[in-house]
Every structure is written in structure tokens, then in C-alpha cells.
Nucleic acid binder design. Structure first.
Lengths: 215, 215
DNA sequence: CTTCCTCTGTGACAAGAGTCACTGTACTCC
DNA sequence: GGAGTACAGTGACTCTTGTCACAGAGGAAG
């Protein structure tokens, strides 16, 4: 286990009170995860609360036929709400979390996380706030699926992607299609249309976003 | 304000500890809501946590064009997770809660609910458990929208409806269509098919469910 | 009984999205 | 430079869902 850089951690979680930070530094473990690796899947027993220090995680849903769709991204400073509330789920569909880039996480043993809820007000607030944020993001995703056509969903997806990792979207059409639970051809066509409006420029294996609001 | 029937309330929320129950009885207000009335809409400032004592609430999403879809039902013993985490939301789409039947709710002022989180372990657990349940239900809804065709979504919807209010589904095709964000004609056709398999029987203004598993 | 209104059933058509087949294009590795 | 491979573009077709138009059917109220 590497030595925790206190300053670094504090910077990501400034809302946590001092004594809690001390415990956190002492009791949690730092883990590095390579881009592309799976961080979590429901059904598996989750024994830790996950705090994200650096990098980018995507949380998505996968059904029994291998279809998937993106729920939301987690950025540094976020906690994985699901890791806090993972009950024994034995349904067919799963929630998965995967590292988009290399990622550093802090693992807090569940029993501690549980205990801190009563002990530290700031931890408690942090946990509740995490639930809220995830709930809201999930609702946005739900909205876009329920009310919007694929063209608007694609826009929503691109906007979100730009927000977490910049205007260079380094994804193939196939990858985008997967995350929207659609098919490559359809995404290709829609992207082409977007390019024609001038909103984006297409390249091999990536695309540049110029302005998604003009559409 | 009516007098709270302690026994009744205890029965719905047996997991709450005694001193908390006492405070709850003293500090919260009972409110009766008529079938069809709106309980809540986001954006509006929510000043209370809502506990459901009797009746049935539906929680649904509505977008700016009046489209809607059902998120989940709340039954007696449930709390409205949203009333606990309503931040100032000023987006276009809204979460709405409406009474399906006549409903009795207990209103807990937000500042108390907040305080109890630290004070009573059982309250804290109850709140966390509520979040979890709603999150899970929302995920199921999301799944059915993202992965399933309308036929399967209709089945899922009917099953859920049967679970909360029995095998007589007293809804017009139009109402069902609304809750699935679809159109009457399509729902009519799908229901007809279901009737042909023997899973349900159609009537004017209601339908009987026999067995939804056989489909 | 008659009128009126809401709910339901149905056929025809349109639009969106998925699938298939095939072509072209850029990059990588010998 | 040439072969192989993953990615991207495109047309044709199908299926599902939504829309429009209209016809019955059942209830309610007079």
C-alpha cells in the first residue's frame, strides 16, 4: 500500500471534518485501477465504500443479454453511492463500474463507513449528498431515455462527456452506440448530421466538439 | 389537526425506536389527501418529510410538454425519499406525486427530520433504507424503458400495479398509455393481444388480471 | 327511448431505429 | 510497399411505435 498523500486527499474532500480526515487517512486503503478495468459489479459482495481521488469512472447498467447503457460518470471528489447501498441483489441486470482512465480510489471498510455516519456529521452529510447527486443524475438519464429521441440523447451524451473529459471525445462510433444501447450505423448517421451543422468534426477514433448548443 | 392514532402509526413503522416514536407523535402533523390530488412537485419548496400511513401514492416524472411516466408507487410504511432530498431544482422536468386513492400522510418538519438523523439511529437507518429502495425501484423502471419493448413494459407495469392494488386494474387504456408515455391505440392493441393469450380480461374502464407469467 | 359523451377497436400510413450487406479508408505490422 | 484489420459511410429493408380517421359500444341523464 502506498502512502496516502494527505494534502491531495484533503483537496478532493474539503467538506470532511478534521478528525474524520485523520481516521480516513489511517483506516482506508489506496488502490490504483487501470483504465478499462472493472471496479465493481452488483451481485458481488461490496465490502468497501469507494471514494474517487483521481481519474474517471463510468457507472452503467448491463442486462442479461449484454446490452448496456451509461448511467453517469464519477469524478474525483465523488463517492460511489452504490457501493454504499449495495444490498444482495440477485437480479439479472447488473450495475457495473469501470475505469475510463487510470483511477485512484480510496477504499473505506463498510463497517467504518457505517459507524462514521453516526460519529461524524460531515460524513453523514457527504453520504446523503452523494445519494442525492446520483439520484438526480440518474433521473436525467432516465428523462433522456424516456422522453427524447436518439438524436437528443446523443447530444445529451456528448455534452456530459465533454463536461467530464473535454472537447476531444476519444471514442469510436461503436463505443458510443454501446453506451447508448444503440447500433453503430445509427450513431454514425446521427454524428454525420451533427457534423453537417458544424457542431462537431469527425475523425477516426475520436471527434471534436465545437458547440453543441447551436443544434 | 386530528389526533394521531399511535397504534396505527406504530404498526406502519415498527422499525422506529420508542423515543423517536414519541417525538414523531408529538411533532408531526397528520394530513389527509383526496384521491387525485397532487401531493408534491419538485421545484416547489418542500418543507416536510412525508411518511405514508394509508392509501397509495404514485410518483412520476413530467416533462415540459406534459409527457409523463410512472417512476414507482409508494405504499403505507414508505417514506417519500424525494421529500427528503428535494433541493432547489429549477429544471424543466419535474417529479410529481399524486394520490391514487385517498391518502393519509404524516408530515415531519424538515429541520426535525434532519436533526433526528444524528439523534436516532433507527431514523437514520430508515432514511437510508428509503433511499435504497427508491433507487432500486427507479433502476427497475429505467431497465424496462431502456432494454424492453413496449409489450414487456406493459407487462411490468401491470405486474407492479397488481402488486400494489390487486387484480382489478381500474384504469382506462388512456390512463395506462399516459403512465407509460405511449398512446392509447398502441396500448389497446397490446392489451388485446394479452387478452387473447388469456392473461387478462378487458372491460370498460377496468381490466382483470389472471396470470401475467404465462405470456 | 334518445342524446351525448367517453371509452374501445381497427385499418392505413408515417417516422424512427435496428439490421444486413457491402464499400471505402486509415492505420499497423511485417 | 503490401496485407490485414478495425473503423466509418451508405443504401435498402424490416419492425416497432406513434398518428390519423373513423366506427362501434356502453353508460349516464334527461
Amino acid at each position: 500500500m502506498e502512502i496516502l498523500d494527505k494534502e491531495e486527499i484533503l483537496k478532493q474532500f474539503p467538506q470532511l471534518e478534521q478528525p474524520l480526515m485523520d481516521e480516513l487517512l489511517k483506516q482506508s486503503t489506496l488502490k490504483t485501477i487501470e483504465a478499462g478495468d472493472e471496479v465493481m459489479r452488483t451481485g458481488q459482495y461490496i465490502k468497501s465504500t469507494i471514494l474517487l481521488l483521481s481519474g474517471l469512472l463510468k457507472v452503467y447498467r448491463e442486462d442479461d443479454e449484454g446490452n448496456e447503457f451509461l448511467m453517469y460518470y464519477l469524478e474525483p471528489g465523488n463517492a460511489c453511492a452504490l457501493s454504499m447501498m449495495c444490498t444482495a441483489r440477485n437480479e439479472k441486470s447488473q450495475i457495473m463500474a469501470k475505469a475510463v482512465t487510470d483511477v485512484e480510489v480510496l477504499l473505506v471498510p463498510s463497517h467504518l463507513s457505517e459507524m462514521w455516519l453516526g460519529k461524524y456529521k460531515s460524513w453523514h452529510n457527504f453520504v446523503i449528498a452523494s445519494y442525492r447527486q446520483r439520484f438526480e443524475e440518474l433521473l436525467q438519464t432516465l428523462d433522456s431515455i424516456a422522453f427524447k429521441g436518439l438524436d437528443e440523447r446523443l447530444l445529451f451524451y456528448l455534452k456530459r462527456h465533454v463536461k467530464v473529459s473535454g472537447k476531444e471525445v476519444r471514442l469510436s462510433h461503436q463505443q458510443i452506440a454501446d453506451e447508448l444501447n444503440s447500433s453503430r450505423e445509427v450513431i454514425s448517421r446521427l454524428l454525420k448530421k451533427l457534423e453537417q451543422t458544424g457542431a462537431i468534426t469527425l475523425h477516426r477514433n475520436y471527434l471534436e466538439v465545437h458547440d453543441l448548443e447551436i443544434v
